[in-house]
Design a protein around this nucleic acid. Structure first.
Length: 482
RNA sequence: GGGGGAGUAGCUCAACUGGUAGAGCAACGCCCUUUUAAGGCGUAGGUUGUGGGUUCGAGUCCCACCUCCCUCACCA
């Protein structure tokens, strides 16, 4: 059947060629964005005209008159093709159009008696013949697998998919603009690293043939951005992909987009303010409100957000004092968490993840993590057991992570060497990076650093509860030919 | 990786307790100059994800495999 449609359309393509028309079009400069055409339309003015280009998404042929809807990136509108108004080749072409073809139509623009703004074309230009059928015109494309595997079909037939993609673009642009205003510079650091540092995650491994060395796709840009701080760059950020060789689900994709930023002479409190500003203003601008639905909850992005310490939250939700290891271990056993061969910090964190995170629905900064969990973070002044770190949770998801950066090379070296019992293999943050320690010995200014998961922010601000809806080409298993 | 669910025409979906696989849209032919998912008449379109099995008979029941979704674990 598909083969028959294809053959029919190929036949139409040859008929179009026989009319002397190139079925694959060419440069076309005169089209105006459909949203702009519709916006400038004036009621009761019959002297208007317009020129629009887009994909044919609906067609209603009625003898010597064809109504069609075309859609461009900005919207869709009706065009009308009439035998009387077109030249002979133009009318022949109109008869050979299929759904999915890309055309341009220009001519007078008036409102029909049913109230629809319509271009009554006196010129029809074929810009590209489509040889395969569009998804169903009313229901669009529903099959999730096809939506992900053939995203172009999803984009062309489901306007909300295009809308999410545009909002993602707008959010990232908003972040860049805001940071530019604050005096930050965007930099690029290695995606391929000989040591996978800066985070705790299993890396992807690849091989460089000429050097005959294994390399890791980065799990974090952190240690490179800090080297730039040592070099004298005071406000830097990078928006790029990180790669983590772990499970896939509705909140995790193996490659995901992070922004990391560093500001000299700042601390984690400054990072919290920046985080609030970036996300709350993005909610306003892109989501249209500071209160947005996510699943069945309503998130209020109006700053300032709740700030609570790790210790307070653990007491509130787990009912234990994190400074009392035996109480924490007892709670862990109660929760069914294996604790026997793990260090205290690991057990505390397991209990925290099991009891607290799911309750952090409204934006919440979790402050002051146990220092042992944070090898790259400065200890808190006045309490060496805590680190000046926050994580931001929204809708139970970790959205951001920030430190007052550790710039003491001796402490950094010690932390790199200290492997905590109970950390999963290959998922420690304590990878010895001698060159990084050397850089700290040259002196890194005190600084605040921040990482924000862009995909998850886009999820929140577009109300999408699966990460695959905000990544245009999410990871899927390749189709196996059988 | 564990548990649960799904896969039927190009698309969106039906098919009772195992009994001749259907509809709408799209396609093809004819009619139609103001339609709005246009309408009317007609035509064509299927290895029911793949491979086995049970049965007189399998889309339906059983086994294995593939892919996707949900969920748990890991993780941001």
């Amino acid at each position: 059947m598909l083969e028959k449609v294809y053959q029919d359309r190929l036949a139409n393509l040859e008929k179009i060629r026989a009319l002397g028309i190139d079925p694959y079009g060419g440069r076309y400069d005169s089209a105006e964005a459909i949203a702009e055409i519709l916006a400038r339309f004036k009621e009761d003015d019959e002297s208007q005209s317009a020129d629009a280009a887009g994909r044919v998404i609906l067609m209603r042929p009625m003898g010597k008159l064809i109504f069609a809807h075309i859609r461009d990136e900005t919207g869709s509108m009706q065009i009308c093709l009439r035998k009387n108004a077109l030249d002979e080749a133009g009318w022949s072409l109109a008869g050979l159009l299929d759904l999915g073809d890309i055309v341009a139509a220009s001519g007078p623009m008036i409102k029909t008696r049913t109230g629809e703004i319509t271009i009554f074309a006196d010129k029809l230009t074929l810009l590209c013949k489509s040889l395969l059928p569009m998804p169903e015109k009313f229901h669009g494309l529903v099959d999730v697998e096809t939506r992900y595997r053939q995203r172009y079909l999803d984009l062309m037939s489901n306007p909300e998919t295009m809308e999410v993609a545009q909002k993602r673009i707008a959010i990232i642009k908003h972040i860049r603009d805001t940071l530019d205003t604050r005096g930050f510079s965007e930099v690029e650091t290695p995606m391929m690293q000989s040591l996978a540092g800066g985070a705790a995650a299993r890396p992807f491994v690849t091989h460089h043939n000429a050097l005959d060395i294994d390399l890791f796709l980065r799990i974090s840009p952190e240690l490179y951005l800090k080297r730039l701080m040592v070099g004298g760059m005071e406000k830097v950020f990078e928006i790029n992909r990180n790669f983590r060789n772990e499970g896939l689900d509705s909140r995790h994709n193996p490659e995901f987009t992070m922004i990391e930023l560093y500001q000299a002479y700042a601390d984690y409190n400054v990072m919290a303010e920046i985080t609030e500003e970036l996300i709350s203003t993005a909610a306003q601008q892109v989501g249209g409100s500071e209160s947005l639905a996510f699943g069945d909850v309503e998130i209020d992005y109006c700053a300032p957000w709740r700030r609570a310490t790790y210790e307070e939250l653990l007491a509130e939700h787990a009912g234990v004092d994190m400074r009392d290891p035996s109480a924490v271990r007892e709670k862990a056993r109660e929760l069914g968490i294996e604790e026997a061969n793990k260090d205290n910090a690991i057990v505390i964190n397991d209990v925290f993840e099991a009891t607290v995170e799911q309750h952090l629905i409204q934006p919440t900064f979790v402050l002051d993590y146990p220092a042992d969990l944070c090898p790259l973070t400065r200890r808190k002044a006045g309490d060496e057991t805590l680190a000046e770190r926050f994580e931001l949770f929204i809708a139970g998801m970790e959205i951001a992570n920030a430190y007052t950066e550790l710039n003491d090379p001796a402490v950094q070296e010690t932390n790199f060497r200290k492997q905590l019992a109970g950390e999963a293999d290959g998922e420690t943050m304590r990878v010895m990076d001698d060159d990084f320690v050397t850089s700290l010995r040259h002196g890194m200014p005190p600084a605040g650093g921040l990482g924000i998961g862009i995909d998850r922010v886009v999820m929140l601000l577009t109300g999408r509860t699966t990460i695959r809806d905000v990544i245009l080409f999410p990871m899927l298993k390749p189709v196996v030919e059988t």
